[in-house]
């Protein structure tokens, strides 16, 4: 038996919005520790790694490890049937379930709805991701990162990210012309609008802007985003989900032939 409750459905809606455009389907791996999802997009250029720890749930019970193959568009349809303030409970009866239930309870308990979703068998590749000491780790406001990705996406398909001690620079060019946005490190590191850079050595990397824009769907989850970069390895873009977990996106760089 698996049962997990969250006091507010809003957080699960935001998590789903952050992954549903990148992934069609994914296995939700449920253990005593929590729920994990690791899946690549169809083209195997990017990867989503989601973790929701059990101690972040209002109630969490997982008697046996189980894997739930979820069609994310279907789950998004169901989540849209909840109000943001609803309590949500995810429930699966069997050890090897072929369906999962979502129960939404209004805050005054006067409205209770439940939706049953069929699960699917997903045979997906799992990647081993090594722990990496990155050359540059940048923390910046998530809304600023989203704005830059959206603005620069108009100019070209590729976005060049350069990071040095002075700051982080985003550049692109195309038929229309070129664009550059530079952010300097801020002095007050504690604020939500802070830009902080930890650097071992400067880095310049090129990425497909389209994927970065997909990642920014996670912006409502966190006021800050963390970018970790080293030359010629995938970019890590990380958003915290309150105190209960995080969503990590990895993106393979474009490399000169």
């Amino acid at each position: 038996m698996f049962e997990a409750s969250l006091a507010q459905s809003a957080i699960l809606k935001k998590v789903l919005d952050a992954i549903k455009d990148l992934l069609n389907e994914a296995n939700f791996e449920c253990t005593d520790d929590g729920i994990k999802v690791q899946a690549m997009d169809n083209s195997h250029v990017s990867l989503v790694s989601l973790e929701l720890r059990s101690d972040g749930f209002e109630k969490y019970r997982c008697d046996r490890n189980l894997s739930m193959g979820v069609n994310l568009a279907s789950m998004a349809k169901i989540m849209r049937c909840s109000s943001n303030s609803d309590k949500v409970t995810i429930k699966a009866q069997d050890d090897n379930p072929d369906k999962v239930s979502f129960i939404f309870e209004s805050s005054n308990q006067e409205r209770i709805s439940d939706y049953e979703m069929k699960l699917m068998d997903i045979d997906a590749d799992q990647l081993g991701i090594p722990d990496t000491e990155y050359s540059c780790v940048v923390k910046m406001p998530s809304a600023e990162f989203a704005r830059i990705c959206k603005d620069l996406n108009q100019f070209g398909e590729s976005l060049v990210i350069s990071c040095s001690k002075e700051g982080i620079k985003f550049s692109t060019s195309g038929d229309l012309g070129s664009a550059n946005v530079k952010l300097a490190q801020t002095t007050d590191a504690d604020k939500d609008d802070a830009v902080t850079i930890e650097m071992r050595s400067p880095v310049t990397l090129t990425f497909a802007c389209r994927y970065l824009n997909h990642f920014t769907k996670a912006t409502p989850l966190s006021s800050q985003v963390q970018l970790s970069m080293s030359d010629e390895i995938p970019l890590l873009v990380e958003y915290r989900i309150g105190d209960m977990g995080c969503i990590k996106y990895y993106l393979a760089p474009k490399i000169d032939d």
Binding site: L47, L127, T206, D256, D257
Partner: peptide
């Protein structure tokens, strides 16, 4: 000219 790599060229399959 740069070309897009896939993640499987950086991370190993489990």
């Amino acid at each position: 000219r740069s070309s897009q790599r896939t993640l499987t060229s950086f991370f190993s399959l489990n």
